[in-house]
Design a protein around this nucleic acid. Sequence first.
DNA 1: TTGGGAGCGATAGTACCAAA
DNA 2: TTTGGTACTATCGCTCCCAA
Length: 225
Amino acid sequence: MNRVDRLMSMLWTLQSKKFVSAEVFAEKYGLSLRTVYRDIKALNEVGIPVYFEPGKGYCIMKGYFLPPLLFTIEEANSLLLLQTLAYKFADKSITKNSDTALEKIKAVLKYQDWEKLEKFSSKVEVYLPSDSNNENHYLSAIQNAIVDKNILNIHYTDNNNNQTQRAIEPIGIIFYNNQWHLIAWCSLREEYRDFIVSKIDRLVRTSEVFKKEHSYTIQEYMKIF
DNA sequence: TTGGGAGCGATAGTACCAAA
DNA sequence: TTTGGTACTATCGCTCCCAA
């Protein structure tokens, strides 16, 4: 990493964390403390309001924000790979967002890097078994419901082709057996259930918050069931 | 019990020099 | 030009001791 990239990286770190000590920077970039002090001074000299709080570390003045407009070609390639995986493993609601995110990244790349990224994008492919299905578009809504603890109303077709309507409280999503599974408290069955996302025929995210205090995390659920 | 001063360690910062 | 090493100073927080 050259010095300019490192200074930018330090800036993003300071923007994303409350306090960072000189020692943490030295360890992160494999530098001596002396060089970290020089870098902090360099940031100050170009007008970035980095200040020091005794016992805590360095911090950037509240309200100061520089949008992360610079990406290296390696970072852009990594994101392109992730987007390719998203196309295969996620649904339309996710790929729509990852498309626009990648377009924003491409827009701020240097022309040479943009050209490299375009060449690379035609040389990456992921193959999945033919029975995998990511044709619906509920993953994004499910993600938001999990974060905001919103109840979901779903129309679901189970393994016996029985169609039911349920109110569920989603605690997490898991990808296994080539399918996304939604783990949720089911008010119809009054227990935790594993719903295959592709078998959800209709999904409505309500503004109603969870009625139950959930005792499981998604990791604990997978260990137990 | 409380407040002040001394001592100590951790951390931040600077100066100078050498090496790559 | 950039970086690291060493020596040094400054500051802060904590603990201990002692006097009021």
